[in-house]
Amino acid sequence: MTEQRPFAVVTGASTGIGFELAKCCAQGGFDLLIVADEPEIETAAAELRASGVSIDAVQADLSTEGGVDRLVAATKGRQVDALLANAGRGLGHAFLDQDIDAARHVIDTNVTGSVLLVHRVGNDMRRRNSGRILITGSVAGFTPGSFQAVYNATKSFLNSFSFALRDELKDTEVTVTCLMPGPTETAFFRRADLLDTAVGTAEKDDAGEVARIGFDAMMNGEGDVVSGWKNKLQTAAASVIPSGVLASQHRKMAEPGSAKS
């Protein structure tokens, strides 16, 4: 009888870091359930199937409890050995100028959906005392995000949540890893309406490299990893620079029209 391969769930896997994380899992011998809230998830699944592992895909909006239920149902009761909670949304412009429904969608996707999913899958991992959880936070979580106020705040929550959950599980065989990338070459900046900003037009990290760093950290059971030496410097500086100064610095990167200055 052939031994069953380990099983991973990757959210936000249609493009960008999520798709690259799914590739890492496939190359690492995991069967996969990949999830996104857009039909492109089927295209991603077709490409990943060339790796020779089993790939299932589900389109689900993880900003809703129903979407999380849909994802869990799609596992068909199979033991989840690795949960890579990567789904996320961004939103640029000043908070009071943003559509509040769009802002709430960022919160519901990044925070509420992630918490619901980790609670559902994490409880099963704890019961059997085995599993790996990777949560995609961000270096943005260390900085008050002028003109990305809601997004940065959600990433601050995820960073903190990851560290706390890891400590709570330290006496188990369940590991929690927080991947904290900096600006990365993905569709994020277009979707967040940040293409007219300095950060939107600046050179960015490679999504494949970021994903590999995060995947390796998860497999090694590391607590957190910041990808890229510039981002490591940024997070170190954020611990000593006053919050008001950090917010002012972020304005220079994210204020609309800053790409021209």
Rank of each mutant, 00 (worst) to 15 (best):
T2Q: 04
E3Y: 00
R5T: 03
R5G: 03
T11G: 09
G12A: 04
G12D: 02
A13E: 01
T15N: 07
G16E: 14
F19Y: 15
L21N: 05
L21R: 09
L21D: 02
A22N: 06
C24D: 15
C24K: 14
C24Y: 15
C25P: 01
A26L: 08
Q27W: 07
G29K: 11
D31G: 02
I34P: 00
I34R: 00
V35D: 07
V35Y: 01
A36S: 13
A36R: 03
A36C: 08
E38S: 07
E38K: 10
P39F: 14
E42W: 04
A46M: 10
E47W: 03
L48G: 01
R49K: 05
A50Q: 12
S54R: 08
S54T: 12
V58R: 00
Q59M: 12
Q59F: 00
S63T: 01
T64F: 00
G66W: 01
R70C: 07
R70A: 13
L71Q: 12
G77F: 00
R78M: 02
Q79A: 14
A82W: 05
L83W: 15
L83N: 10
G88S: 04
G88P: 05
R89P: 05
A94I: 00
L96C: 15
D99A: 10
D101S: 13
D101K: 05
A102C: 08
A103Q: 13
R104P: 11
V106H: 03
T109C: 09
N110A: 03
S114F: 10
S114W: 01
V115L: 10
H119A: 11
V121K: 01
N123L: 11
M125E: 05
N129Y: 08
S130D: 07
R132T: 03
I133Q: 03
L134V: 13
I135T: 10
T136H: 10
T136R: 02
G141M: 01
F142H: 07
T143V: 14
F147W: 12
A149H: 01
A149Y: 01
V150L: 02
N152S: 09
T154C: 03
T154H: 03
F157S: 10
F157A: 07
F163T: 11
L165S: 11
R166V: 11
D167P: 04
L169E: 13
D171I: 09
T172Q: 13
V174R: 12
V174M: 08
T177S: 06
L179I: 08
M180H: 11
P181W: 13
G182A: 09
P183N: 14
T184D: 09
E185I: 07
T186M: 04
F189A: 09
A192I: 01
D196Q: 04
T197D: 09
V199N: 05
G200F: 06
A207I: 04
A211V: 05
I213Y: 05
F215I: 09
F215N: 12
D216S: 06
E222L: 08
D224E: 05
D224P: 04
V225F: 00
V226L: 14
W229G: 06
N231Y: 13
K232S: 14
L233G: 12
L233Y: 07
Q234N: 10
T235I: 14
A238E: 02
S239A: 13
I241S: 02
I241L: 06
S243F: 13
S243I: 03
L246E: 09
L246P: 14
L246H: 06
A247Y: 11
H250M: 11
A254T: 10
P256I: 00
A259W: 12
K260A: 15
